[in-house]
Amino acid sequence: MTIPADIENTPPRRQAWWRALMRDPSAAVSMIVLALFVLGAVLAPLIAPHDPFEGTRSVMQPPVWAERGDWTYILGTDGQGRDILSRLLYGTRLTLLIGLLSVGIGGFIGSFLGLLSAFYPRLSPFVMRFADVMLSFPAILLGLALVAIFGPGALPVIIALSIATVPDSARIARSIALSVMQQEYIEAGRAIGLSDTAVFTRYLVRNSISAIMIFMSLRFGQIILIGAALSFLGLGARPPAAELGMMASQGRDFILFAPHIAFIPSLTIFIIVLAANITGDALRDVLDPRMRS
């Protein structure tokens, strides 16, 4: 099979959307911010200035820009005398990990179910009713129940958030796949005698995947927020692990006297979620054919 020359000469699609994305300044800034947080999280053990778990006797040190702040503890220390910057790096790590894993696992299972129910319409009522049942169950409640069974920790939170992601992604994937199923190439594929598996993977999955990914990127911010909320309630990370929601919760006791202990991790959650949402929005604008004018 030879590729026609004029197609070969057009820039690849990926480059096109990347350029479009970078033309949107808010999207560009958001992506850089996200990239910095990811980098900080990945390199946490290398760049953290102090041990994030070891308490010192200088408790409640203000950050460097405040009066009496100093460069030893750039963002100050918490109620146990631990360096907030180091805990923030490690905390971002756990927060991002919880978000990524939950969206990844839940999104994979959900999308697969959604695509399957679009491909085999007979499955559809079962999958969709199941999704409806799941949707009526708040993620926080599910998290509470799982923590009651397994005890507090990152794992039950990831399981709860994954489960909470399944119904949404199943519905979205199904609606996307349904429109793809109407396309003529699906019919053409069947006409040339391709197996179900081949039509499913080569035509349906490949043509739905980008739209599903957009949904996932939007979901990511939400999941981080719920994960942080669960940790704030004391259900997520187990001490001495650092997690942004947990750090905010611990800082609550000091809010009248050393507000930075709660404020810094809260602000970090805010920035990460905002950046994730703007990036997701921008991705949708660029990738979704229906949004292109």
Binding site: V59, A66, E67, L256, F257, A258, P259
Partner: peptide
């Protein structure tokens, strides 16, 4: 430097 004597929180209380 254990007990902050001047912080935004203190102003809040005041």
């Amino acid at each position: 430097m254990k007990h902050p004597s001047k912080s935004p929180g203190r102003l809040l209380l005041a």
